[in-house]
Amino acid sequence: MALALVRLIPTDTNVPFIKARLAAFFVSVALILGSVTAFFTLGLNFGIDFRGGTAIEVQTEGPADLGALRTVLEGLDLGDVQVQGFGADNEALVRVGQVSAERANEIEGYSVENDAEAQQAVRQYVSDTLEREFPGIVFQKIESLSPQVSGELVVAGATSIGVALFLMLVYIWFRFEWQYSVGAVLALIHDVIATIGFFAVTQLEFNLSTIAAILTIVGYSMNDTVIVYDRIREDFRKFKTRPTTEVLNGAINSTLSRTILTSGTTLVAIVAMAVIGGPALEGFALALIWGVGVGTYSSIFVAAPLLTLTGVKRTSDDDDEGHAVAP
């Protein structure tokens, strides 16, 4: 089956990708400007991880029915609620978003004066409801995540993305040349901004899983870019008099079959995750689906064409010194 699929993808394509670099440039600029505009006008729909709330670890008598837990908690109308498997098959993690004092006072039997008391009321309300609906349930741990801690998580998440981009820059600089590193990192920044814009437009929940998805996208896109760059460097050594644009276009086309197969098989797994993974994995899976698409696009239409602007050398330092070059 895999062999038949490989045969369906031509290995001698000659698609003029580099000729389309100007159109791709305008598409990328529009995508980045649109993403930045959406971020500042619509904002991100931060999840419990970044807004604060209550986390409760529970243990049920039998296998935890996550769907039933989710249905009961959503019926309480407390806003953002998350339920996911945790540890053994009879354990679950329940998270409820920050609830205002005004909303807590609407709960029958509760009267609070501030947000701190509101969170205590919500913890008690959720616990009482779960004990009533799921006899024998055990509360292993109950804790609150304050907005201050959540703010620190936002900073930590942004820092992790920045560090990842910087380390990629250093890696490509040493692996190839600084001209390649500029193109690769600009392509990665393009992917990160586009992904954040995707979450701003769709208003999907932005949480720690999303940060993990973005870091995964960075790694995936970088891997795709390195494959193309490796072929470009080989072709520069092989075709010393061929125009740069022809070398770049040839390298992209020669790796196109690999790119299509890798992206296609990756998407099959991610789409399956999005379809059967439920609400807990929805945001993560959708971010990866978007990231695979935009990462593949940037490797072809951003990273490689940028080499025409950075003045990449056609030969390595070893070539200049007359040393042998590996084929």
Rank of each mutant, 00 (worst) to 15 (best):
Q120M: 07
F284T: 02
Y110Q: 05
M1F: 15
A158W: 04
H190P: 06
D49L: 04
F199A: 11
T37Q: 10
R132S: 09
S100M: 05
W173A: 13
D320L: 15
L31S: 14
E61Q: 15
Y125P: 08
L22E: 03
I161C: 13
M168R: 00
G52Q: 06
A121E: 05
V96G: 03
V81G: 07
V302P: 12
R132C: 00
L44E: 02
T259I: 15
A274T: 05
S298M: 08
E131S: 08
L130G: 00
A20L: 12
G250K: 01
F25S: 15
T310F: 01
V154P: 00
D191H: 03
E102T: 02
N114Q: 04
A269Y: 13
E143G: 09
E102I: 05
L165G: 02
L22W: 14
R258L: 14
A121L: 06
I18V: 13
Q124L: 11
L188C: 11
Q203C: 10
F46H: 13
R242T: 00
D128R: 06
A303P: 10
N253T: 02
M1P: 15
A212G: 12
V201C: 11
P147C: 03
A118M: 10
G67H: 10
W178V: 10
H323T: 00
A30K: 02
V81S: 04
Y297I: 02
L76E: 06
P135L: 01
P243S: 00
T159P: 04
A68D: 13
F39R: 06
R103K: 13
R21N: 09
R70K: 08
L66T: 07
V83Y: 08
P243D: 00
L69H: 03
F176C: 06
D191M: 02
L165P: 07
E113N: 11
E57W: 06
G250Q: 04
Y180N: 12
F26T: 11
A164D: 08
L66E: 15
L281C: 05
I260Y: 10
I252D: 01
L288A: 07
F206R: 05
A187N: 06
V149P: 07
V294H: 12
Q119C: 04
R7K: 15
A2N: 15
I18G: 02
V15F: 15
R95E: 05
L130K: 00
G264L: 07
H190V: 01
